[in-house]
């Protein structure tokens, strides 16, 4: 069963930053990696990811560098910056807080 599009849209930044914090990647590689991890829960399309990458780069959360990929071709790699890591930490904390609230509501809902 797929996730709600609105929810996926709201979590795009945290997913991108999380993936790049683990390993720098170029656009196509990043999309493929996230889609594999998502395992059919959702599927990212190119048009959705590139604007987010460019926006994060503009905000200073990512930096780019053209370098040779495993295929031997030159690709634009995205690296997370210190500002990006800060943002990721902040977002993760917000996500956890939200998760706690949802969990509490769930407990209330299941209370005898």
């Amino acid at each position: 069963m797929g996730l709600d599009k609105e929810l996926i849209g709201a979590t795009t930044r945290i997913l991108v930053l999380s993936a790049l914090a683990k390993e720098p990647d170029y656009g196509y590689g990043l999309i493929k990696r996230i889609n594999v991890v998502a395992d059919g829960l959702f599927e990212w399309h190119e048009g959705t990811v590139y604007p987010v990458l460019h926006k994060l780069e503009k905000e200073g959360c990512l930096r780019t560098q053209w370098q040779e990929a495993d295929s031997g071709r030159c690709r634009k790699y995205y690296y997370i910056t210190a500002k990006g890591r800060e943002m990721l930490t902040e977002r993760k904390r917000s996500w956890r807080d939200l998760n706690v609230v949802v969990g509490r509501l769930g407990e209330i809902g299941h209370a005898p």
Partner: peptide, 14 residues
Amino acid sequence: YDELYTHLEDKILA
């Protein structure tokens, strides 16, 4: 341009 080109190239080859 370069990013778009390389992306489409990757996609076609894939």
